[in-house]
């Protein structure tokens, strides 16, 4: 039982890490290649970066081959991979009835959710 427990958690964590890595790598590569097809001046200004945070802009960008849209999605996926890893771990510990570690891992997820909440509320 103990052996199976470990197997499940390790396999789940491994798959979550691998999937996130593959997807973001492909998107970054696509973005860089698209950007290098037409080298231009890119502003370093945070407000320029934030101007791309719209679902409509993002979707149109992906369809029209805008490099920024591809790199933005890659960045988002990369940031979400560890979050997914934590969620997968909670589930795997739960399936294995290791409730102590369901609790430990849930606290970690709570800090992540708190961060999103804080950023949305007042740290812009």
């Amino acid at each position: 039982m103990a052996m199976e427990t470990e197997q499940n958690v390790y396999a789940g964590v491994y798959r979550a890490l691998l999937a996130g890595m593959a997807a973001s790598t492909l998107l970054f590569a696509a973005g860089v290649i698209l950007a290098l097809l037409h080298p231009t001046y890119v502003p370093l200004d945070p407000s320029w970066v934030r101007s791309h945070y719209r679902l409509g802009t993002e979707l149109r960008g992906l369809l029209s081959g805008d490099p920024t849209a591809y790199m933005l999605l890659g960045t988002l996926l990369l940031i979400l991979t560890p979050v997914a890893r934590v969620v997968v771990s909670i589930y795997a510990f739960y399936v294995d009835r290791d409730y102590k570690y369901v609790a430990v891992t849930s606290i970690v997820l709570a800090v992540m959710i708190l961060t999103v909440g804080l950023s949305c509320l007042g740290l812009r």
Binding site: S24, T25, F28, A29, G31, V32, A35, V42, L44, P46, S47, W48, V49, R50, H52, P67, T68, M71, L72, G74, T75, L76, L78, I79, L80, T81, P82, V83, V111, M112, T115, V116, L118, S119, C120, L123, R124
Partner: peptide, 23 residues
């Protein structure tokens, strides 16, 4: 990931720098 979420919202994560660096 926690710090990245905050920097992302602040617009400090510049995709054109991040992509080659992450690759």
């Amino acid at each position: 990931a926690v710090s990245s979420i905050l920097f992302f919202m602040a617009g400090l994560i510049h995709f054109y720098v991040v992509a080659p660096v992450a690759l």
